[in-house]
Design a protein around this nucleic acid. Sequence first.
DNA 1: CATGAATGAGTGTTCATTCAT
DNA 2: TATGAATGAACACTCATTCAT
Lengths: 185, 185, 185, 185
Amino acid sequence: MVDVIVEATWKILAEEGYAAASTNRIAERAGTSVGSLYQYFPNKDAIVAAVQRRHHADLGAVMAAAFSEAAGMPLEQATRRLVRASLEAHLLDPDLHRTLSERVADSVNPETRETLKTGIQGQIRHWLEAYRDDLTVTDLDTAAFVVLHMVEGVTHAAILDQEQTPDPQRIEDELTATVVRYLTG
Amino acid sequence: MVDVIVEATWKILAEEGYAAASTNRIAERAGTSVGSLYQYFPNKDAIVAAVQRRHHADLGAVMAAAFSEAAGMPLEQATRRLVRASLEAHLLDPDLHRTLSERVADSVNPETRETLKTGIQGQIRHWLEAYRDDLTVTDLDTAAFVVLHMVEGVTHAAILDQEQTPDPQRIEDELTATVVRYLTG
Amino acid sequence: MVDVIVEATWKILAEEGYAAASTNRIAERAGTSVGSLYQYFPNKDAIVAAVQRRHHADLGAVMAAAFSEAAGMPLEQATRRLVRASLEAHLLDPDLHRTLSERVADSVNPETRETLKTGIQGQIRHWLEAYRDDLTVTDLDTAAFVVLHMVEGVTHAAILDQEQTPDPQRIEDELTATVVRYLTG
Amino acid sequence: MVDVIVEATWKILAEEGYAAASTNRIAERAGTSVGSLYQYFPNKDAIVAAVQRRHHADLGAVMAAAFSEAAGMPLEQATRRLVRASLEAHLLDPDLHRTLSERVADSVNPETRETLKTGIQGQIRHWLEAYRDDLTVTDLDTAAFVVLHMVEGVTHAAILDQEQTPDPQRIEDELTATVVRYLTG
DNA sequence: CATGAATGAGTGTTCATTCAT
DNA sequence: TATGAATGAACACTCATTCAT
């Protein structure tokens, strides 16, 4: 039932937007009643937060898989794998992603966005350590921060503003090159 | 009067958050009445949109000034100037910037965010043309897109999540190096 | 408008009972809208509290008038006047009085019931002082407490449970005699 | 099971107040389920009514014992015994007594409050008959009514508003004297 | 008989918007 | 033109009651 509610809210946020996500609409789309919402969640924000948490878990899983695969690859190939993962993550559900990033303040779910970013930044840092001898950057924390937000900034824009964006393949190539040059330039 | 209303809304969004920005609160802080709000704006969204437009104009002005100064500089120096401008732009009013980016959907103001980004992207593209012979990138549209979102992604995160961010000087150095290497690598 | 709202609530409490006093019903009977209720009162309890306060003011006024008239009368005549006032007070609006005493906890309006009782007890005490030489009771505070609640207890029951009550004239006689004997016995 | 439910509701009304007495809270405190509540009671009001009935039975038992003991005593001693019983009755559970008298309308349980009062009034009347020759009051029904509500009014206030009340011993003395004088004055 | 998840009508409250003054 | 009282649809949330298991 928790799943049913979260999924209904997910779909409403993605397809109908944040304003449509009233408790009555959620119950309706979940095929249940408002009362049941409150049997499983303390309030509406908690439902939205659960959706956000689940979406972030999905994003995290895509990235984690990529980090796992990238381990052992040569730097450029690994970088490409991670850039591609970021694109894939944004393509999981661009509509939900947009609604969450544009309408759901951190305050609803104080830990989750930070947790996601901190987790990925940590994974990047750890991944970079394997290539330390090849890198010109020396402060790996800063490097992880820059790589994370550089890739996130470009892929987020590329997927969410598709109309005026170069094609994804191109984005992948450019980002890969940029990151590699940044790290080894 | 339009100015008074926009400024009051600006302050509320920055200091009290989106939820506090009711029409009554806006009128109160503007020293006027709700009725007058509707003499100058068709609805509440239009007021928020005006704030957003004005903030975007400010951001645009900071960037335009930087482009103006950067013209004629050597590539690296120009790049540094533009990166610094992006940091300055995010520092104009980080609280308002956060509220607008986290709570005000594009749909409120369909054109303004796009206009800002398109405008800056165009300026970047135009700026790049002056250095065409030095660049290894060939598709200047793609390059402008990548530079814009790379710099925006990193500076946005750096200014809004200050607690876990390397210091701004470092960010400036890294971004400048990254962009230069991307363009000329 | 405050008056209109209080009066409508008054009537609902008296005629339809506490359960009927929803904000929508109040607005309807006041010929206004729920929104207007909240322009004049912070919440529903405050409306009920205002009715209670007004009713208590009416009760207090009836008693005050009686104390004023009773001053200077011989003890028995004065006592009769006060007893009659208590009956009159309960007859002002027995239905409202019942609903308030049976359904509206002190907690809704922490001061008002106490204020009323304390005020009247003080007036009784003050009134007794004029007869001090004729009284056999010595502790006037205790006497005032006993007289207040003795008269209130009997008149409240007499008016609110009319069906099984001796006629009011009889109650008046008996209470007058009781009080006089208590004070001078 | 009926007992368990009634006792749980009793405790909630006394310790947590009327607002806390939801069916779920009752079931929880009774160590059962809401479903079982409805196996033994037709609705929530019936549960509260049962508590009221049981409390009234307890009050009645205290009074009945006193009437039993008072039979045969001289008038003043008997009166003191009954006054004391009224104080004892209010002390059985003042918190429950307050909640029931302030929040539970007669309508919930149309017969019980009347039954209690009628019963006691009848016992008073019957008790008075034994002293008929010593009494100056002639209408024993009226006398019973007056004595009942006089004593109830003062003892109720004395026990429930303890902070601003003379001490109980004093109340007992005063009430005893008043009643005796009323009956024999 | 007992359970407790499910129900949904109903609640108090908010707030963008209107319009008589 | 400016006002702010009035509006009422919409909201999040509660809780007595039901009924499939």
